[in-house]
Amino acid sequence: MTKMKKAKKPFYKRIWVWALAIIIVAAIASGGEEDTATESTATEEKAVTETADTKTEATKEEAPKVEETKAEATKEEAPKEEPKQEEAVQEEPVQEEPAKPEVSLSQQNAISKAEQYLDYTAFSHSGLIEQLTFDGFSNEEATFAVDNITVDWKEQAVKKGQDYLDYTSFSRSGLIEQLTFDGFSREEATHAVDTLGL
């Protein structure tokens, strides 16, 4: 028997088979890529979600710390309460004026006598004390009296110098010597002579 040759399929049918196979492979490959892409996207979304969750948890953990820090800062910034002053204000002690020395009757009389002499004529400090002791007052009483009256001794020197010039003539140096003899200081005597024009 003679073998019969198999009839070859037409070329266009083979191409169609190959095309179908390529489409199937491409579809499978495409499906795999989509799955991979989907898996990748899901992984990324999961990572983002986990990151967000981590941030949220971190924020939740940090929130109380921030609040505590703010509270501490507020406490530090808040002005410290000043201690309450005592309601009862302590009264300041009244400063008493130094008591004036008691003046005895004899001292008062010595003061009055000194003022009468000064109304009548001019005296130096020491000259007035001598006059009062001459009148019978003790040296202590006379000194107390002269120290407790208000007198410008330079002015007294001028008056005494004028009294001398009204009575007699004096040179400059002679009048200075006379005034110092009467108990005026050199300065007081010189002031008197300068004022009188000698």
Rank of each mutant, 00 (worst) to 15 (best):
E45C: 01
D53Q: 12
K75W: 03
V94Q: 07
E96P: 04
K46H: 13
V103R: 04
T49P: 00
K100D: 01
A37M: 13
E72A: 09
E81F: 02
T38V: 01
A73T: 03
Q85I: 02
T49R: 09
I28A: 09
T59I: 14
E67I: 09
T43H: 12
Q95V: 01
E97S: 01
T49I: 13
S30A: 15
T43N: 14
A58E: 05
E81T: 05
K65R: 14
T51E: 15
T43S: 12
E50Q: 11
A26T: 14
E50T: 12
V94R: 03
A73Y: 05
P64N: 03
V94E: 04
P98S: 05
E92I: 05
P93K: 06
E92V: 08
A37E: 08
A47L: 14
A47G: 04
E86P: 02
A71R: 14
E81Q: 10
P101C: 00
E87G: 08
A78K: 15
T38G: 08
E57G: 07
E44H: 14
E72Q: 07
E45G: 05
E33K: 04
A52R: 07
P83L: 08
E91Y: 04
E72Y: 03
K80H: 03
A27S: 09
K65A: 13
V103E: 06
T59G: 11
E91Q: 03
P98D: 11
S30C: 06
